[in-house]
Structure formats: C-alpha cells, structure tokens
C-alpha cells in the first residue's frame, strides 16, 4: 500500500504537530485528488468551454458570450426550464405528502412494520433506467397490465396511450418517481420523527390534544431540519431528471416533456456542440446553487426564529 511507508513514522500521542498534520493529509489525498480530477477540474473546464464554439471533434473558436446570448434567446431552453421546474414542484410535493403518510405509518414499532418498510424502500435500490423500462411495459397499450385492468374495470374504452397527452405523460413519470424514491423520503422523515422526544407527545396527551393537533404543533415544527434536507435532495434530484424522460416520453408529446439535462445531452452528443452544451450546464449549475442556497437560508432562518 502506498501509505504504509509514511505510516511507519508512527506519530506519538504528543508528537510533533507537523508530522501529524502531514499524515492526515496523506489519508485524504487519494480521495481529494480523484475528486479534483474527475469533478473540480471538469467544472472549471466546463466554464471555459462555455465561451467557445467547441465541436465534439475538437475544432474550437473563442466566441466570448455568444453561447450565453444564444441561451437567452433559446425558447426551447426556457420552455424546458419551465417544464423542469413544474415537474420539480409536483414531484417534491408528491414525495413529501406520500412520504409523510408512509413515515407516520411505519415509525412505530408494531408487528409487521419492518416488512412494510422493506416493501416501501425496495424500489429505491433499482436503477431509474430499469424502472423506466418496467413502466414502459406496464403502461403499454397492447401488452401492459395497467391499460388492461382499466379496460376490464370499464374505466376506459379502446386504446390507452398514456404518453400521448401532456398531463397523462407527466403523471406517469411522477407516479414512477414517487414509487421509485418515496421509500427514501419515508426513511428520512421517519428518522426525524423518531428523534423527537416522546415527552412532548406525552405532555400534549395530558393536555388532551388530538393526534392531528399534535402532528401540526409538535411533529411538523420539530421536523423542519429534516424537511429542509428532504426538500434540497428532492429539488436537486428532480432538476437533474434524465433517464425517465429519455426512456419513457422521449420528450413528447410535442416536445412538452424535455428536461434541461436532455437538452445538455442533445446539444453535446447529437448536435456535437459542446460549447453550447457547456453554457447550458453552467446555467443549470447556477440555478441549482441559488435554489439550494435559498432553501438552506429558509431552513436556517426558521430554526432561529
């Protein structure tokens, strides 16, 4: 191992401070170097590329702010950003509501609750691409079980093409995402709830408070940090959605479901325009940083007050 040599310079408990420092640096160095090379440097390169007309094949030309000017005029980018925002709002709300419901159900020790938790978390571990192919099949008009059941139940007649209208296409993706990720939301909220001291509830019970009241006055306020965490994770994750749209809707119907990452991919690897792709990336990065900062501030302020 690369580190064994230096590790032999065994630091005494009160050994020289400098030696101790260097040793710590050695421990973190491999990870830091990798993160620098595979993450920090690419971020910098992306920023540089966004000022170039840069083809995938390598030809490039400095064009200043042209890519950003183009971004400003690109209606598809702004439409896509609007759609991604709408999707994020819906997914976040759905995850919070369903996640809360499930967390309330499984937070207590109760016979069989472990099995329930396992069932709700299970979809979290499969990939989004895999889940999307599963959904594609379940919803297929000819061979899928969902249209078949709907027809059998007499709810619809004739063909069911979920991905042919915007509301149904979006709904299908949202249901997929909730199914696939709500287990995680549930776990986080559940842990947060379990961390709330029972004393509060006991006192409230003595005062004759009802469960709904306790939820509103005790659970919700004390869960704020957890909710903030869930919000940040969900918002970032939703703004970066790609797999499910790439596979399920392919941007349709009528280009109404194109997430921003799809445009970044398209500009770079279908149009071979890496410069413009990079400019969109920087735009997305800035938006996400701002959103995260706002959420952190809100959560912190509320905590202070």
């Amino acid at each position: 191992m690369a580190l064994s040599l230096s590790a032999r310079t065994r630091p005494r408990r009160r050994g020289p401070q400098a030696r101790r420092q260097r040793l710590g640096l050695l421990f973190v160095l491999p990870a830091v170097a990798l993160v620098l090379g595979i993450f920090v440097v690419p971020v910098v390169v992306t920023a540089v590329m966004s000022f170039y007309d840069w083809s995938l094949l390598g030809q490039r030309r400095f064009i200043g702010l042209d890519n950003y000017r183009r971004l400003g005029e690109d209606t598809q980018f702004w439409q896509s950003l609007g759609f991604t925002t709408l999707y994020t709002v819906i997914v976040t709300a759905a995850l919070l509501v369903v996640g809360f419901g499930l967390a309330l159900a499984v937070r207590h020790r109760r016979r069989g609750v472990g099995v329930l938790r396992t069932a709700f978390v299970m979809p979290v571990v499969i990939g989004f691409a895999t889940a999307a192919y599963l959904t594609l099949w379940l919803l297929d008009d000819r061979i899928g079980i969902v249209p078949d059941l709907l027809r059998r139940a007499g709810l619809v007649e004739g063909s069911v093409s979920v991905f042919s209208t915007f509301p149904t296409a979006l709904a299908a993706v949202v249901v997929l995402v909730v199914w696939k990720t709500v287990g995680l939301t549930m776990l986080l909220l559940m842990t947060g709830m379990q961390a709330i001291s029972q004393d509060f509830y006991e006192a409230a019970q003595v005062d004759g408070a009802r469960p709904a009241r306790m939820f509103r006055s005790i659970t919700l306020p004390l869960l704020r940090p957890t909710i903030g965490l869930v919000l940040i994770l969900t918002v970032i994750g939703s703004y970066l959605a790609f797999d499910q749209f790439f596979i399920l809707t392919q941007g349709g119907p009528d280009n109404s479901t194109i997430p921003v990452v799809y445009l970044i991919y398209r500009a770079g690897f279908i149009d071979f325009d890496l410069g413009y792709s990079a400019a969109m990336s920087i735009g997305l990065m800035v938006i996400l940083l701002i959103l995260t900062a706002i959420q952190l501030l809100v959560v912190r302020n509320r905590e202070d007050s």
Partner: peptide, 19 residues
C-alpha cells in the same frame, strides 16, 4: 468534497468526456 454534492455531474458531462 461536499460541494460535489451540490453540483450535478450531469452538468459537467461535456468536459468530463473530453478529459
């Protein structure tokens, strides 16, 4: 290291590819 959680890898794909 933590900041990498805030910046999505999807947005650095073009440059990551080149590198």
């Amino acid at each position: 290291i933590l900041s990498t959680m805030m910046i999505p890898f999807q947005s650095i794909i073009p440059s990551l590819y080149l590198i």
